[in-house]
Design a binder for these strands. Sequence first.
DNA 1: CGGTATCAAGATACCGATAACATTTCGTTT
DNA 2: AAACGAAATGTTATCGGTATCTTGATACCG
Lengths: 319, 319
Amino acid sequence: MADLAQLAGVSKITVSRALGDSPLVNPETRERIHALAREHDYKLNISARNLRLRRSHTVAVIVEMKPSTDRTMFDPYPLLLLGGISQELTAAGYSVLLTTRQGASAAAVQAADGLILLGQGVHQDAVRRFDKLRLPMVVWGAHTGNDAHVVVGSDNRLGGAVVARHFIALGRRRPVFIGNPSHPEIFERLNGFVDALAVRGIKPLLMRRDEFTLDSGMDAVHSLHARKVGFDAIFACNDLLAMGAIRATLDLGRSVPADVTVVGYDDMPLGASFLPPLSSVRQDWQEGGILLARKVLALIEGEPASSESLPVSLIVRST
Amino acid sequence: MADLAQLAGVSKITVSRALGDSPLVNPETRERIHALAREHDYKLNISARNLRLRRSHTVAVIVEMKPSTDRTMFDPYPLLLLGGISQELTAAGYSVLLTTRQGASAAAVQAADGLILLGQGVHQDAVRRFDKLRLPMVVWGAHTGNDAHVVVGSDNRLGGAVVARHFIALGRRRPVFIGNPSHPEIFERLNGFVDALAVRGIKPLLMRRDEFTLDSGMDAVHSLHARKVGFDAIFACNDLLAMGAIRATLDLGRSVPADVTVVGYDDMPLGASFLPPLSSVRQDWQEGGILLARKVLALIEGEPASSESLPVSLIVRST
DNA sequence: CGGTATCAAGATACCGATAACATTTCGTTT
DNA sequence: AAACGAAATGTTATCGGTATCTTGATACCG
C-alpha cells in the first residue's frame, strides 16, 4: 500500500481511503488510485486489516462429522443448509470457515466473528463449549422452549402434526411412528404427532429405530408383523425408513396406500420416483441456511435476533 | 500477551516462545506461562500472527454450487471429499475456507495459503482465473494428460474399463453407455469403456443423458426400446440412472440380470437395498479428499506434488 | 583465573492496514 | 483583506504477535 501511495504521489492513508471508497477522498484521486491498484494487481492484505479492525469477516460453521449410518453431514440435506449459509454470508462480504467439532479447537475458530452450529447431537453436549468463546452464535436444531441461544430449525412439531391430521382425515386408527426420538428434532416430530392424534383419542405405536436406512425401515415393519401388531399407517421420520417400510409392507402382502398409509420425511428427490411415489414432509433447508446466516449477521452487528421455526409442507403422493 | 508477560514477570517475546513451545525458553518458565495462559483463558490473536508470519494457515476450497439436477455440490459424494479434506487439513493445523466460485472473489480467498478446486465444470473455465492468484492449487477431476496443475481424481478410465471387462466376461455383445460425456470425468469413463470393449471388437451405444436422475435413466431405456435398438448390457455413469434403467428394463418385460446386465457408478448406499441389489463402481471419495489435502499441504511447504489417480472397484451384486 | 560455549531472556523492529487527530488548501463570507 | 469553514490530505499511533540481534548469567575448559 505504501508503494501504491508513492506511485500515486499521496500518503498511505489516502490510498486506504480511496480503496475503501471513503467519501473523504476526492473522486478524481480515488479513481486514479483505483486504476493504479488494478494496473499493478494490488491485493489488500486481509490479515493486516483483520488485525487493525479486530474483525475477521468470517463465520465459523461447525458440523457434526462422525462416520456412521446415523444422520451425518454427508446427508445431502444438511448440505443444503451449508449452501444457504454460504450464499447469504458471501453476499454480505463474509467468509465461511468450515470445521468439525474436533477441529473447532483449532485457533482459527476463535478468530471468527460468529458461529453457526449444525448437527443434532450438538445440542446439549457441545453448545456450552462454544458458548465460552463468547461469540455471536446460532444453532440449527430443535427448539427446547427455553433456549439460552438463538435456534433456527424447521417446525418439527408442525411436521408431526401435519402427518397426524393427514392420517386422521384418512380415517386411520392404528398409526406407527418409526425413528429415533433421542434426536431432539425427531423427538419434536413425535410430540407433534402424538399430540395431534390425541385429539381423536388415538395413540400411535413407537417403533424405535436408530439407523436411518432402508433396511432399518424394512426391519421395523417385519418386527411389527412378527409381534402380530396391527397397523394401518406409518410415519417414518426419514424417507429411507419410509421406503423400507413400504417395501416390507408390500412383501407382507398388504397394499400401500389402500391398507397402509405411509409418509416419510425430507422429501428426497428419489422419493418421487419410488414405486409407489412416496408422500413426505418437506422442509426448506436452503431457506434455513439463509436464515441462520441472517441471524448471526444480525448478532454480529449487535442487533437482537430471536429463535425461529420454518414452516414445513406435506407433499401427498401415492402412499 | 503483554499482560501475560507482566503477570509472569517476563517479556512478551518469552511468552510468545513459551506458548509456541520453543526450545529457547526454560522448561519451567514455559510451564509457568502455559499455566497462566490457561488460568486466564488467554487466546492467541490469529490475525496478528497471520500478519506477522504472512501465512493464514487456511486453505480455500472452492466448490461448484449451481442449483440444478445436474451433479452439484449437493450430491452427498462430493461432500465426502470435503470431509476428507477437512479431516486432513485440520490434523495439520489448517482451516478450511469454504467458497463458491462466485464468492471466491471475496478478499479472504487470496489470503489463503492454498486452493482446492472441486466441481467438474471448473476445469477449463475457472482454473485460469484462480491460477492468477499464484497460490498452491490442487484440482479434483479428470486428468487431461498435460495438466498445468496438480489434479487428483479417481481413475475414471479404469472405472470404464472394469465395467467393460465385466460385460465381456459375461458374454455381452451389445452394451449401452448412459450419461453425459461432456463432463470430463464421465468422458474418461466412456473412453475407458470404449477402449476396453474395442479389444473384443465391440462398439457400445452412447445414450447421452444430461440429468442424473432415476427418471432420466428410465427415459433412456424407453427411448432405446422405441427406436427398436437391441441391448444386453447397460453401463450408467451414476446409480440413479442405473436404477431408472433397471426399472424401465423390467417394465419392458425383460429380466435383470438374465437378459440385461446393469452396472451403475458411485455405489450409493441405497443401491445395495435396491431391488435387485445394484452392481456399481465404487470410488473412495474420502480418500480423495485426504489426498487433495496432502497435495496442497505439500505444495504449501514448497515440496513437489504430482497428479494422482485413485483406484476404483467394481462391486458386483445382482444386476 | 581468564576465556569461551551454552542457555535464557530482553530490546527493538516490523508485518500492513486504519482510526484519531492535525494540517493544508481553497473558496466564501463580511 | 482578514477570518472562517469545508474539503482533501497528511502524521502518528496502534492492532498483537514474532524474527533478529543483543545482552546477561552460568558452566566448563585448560
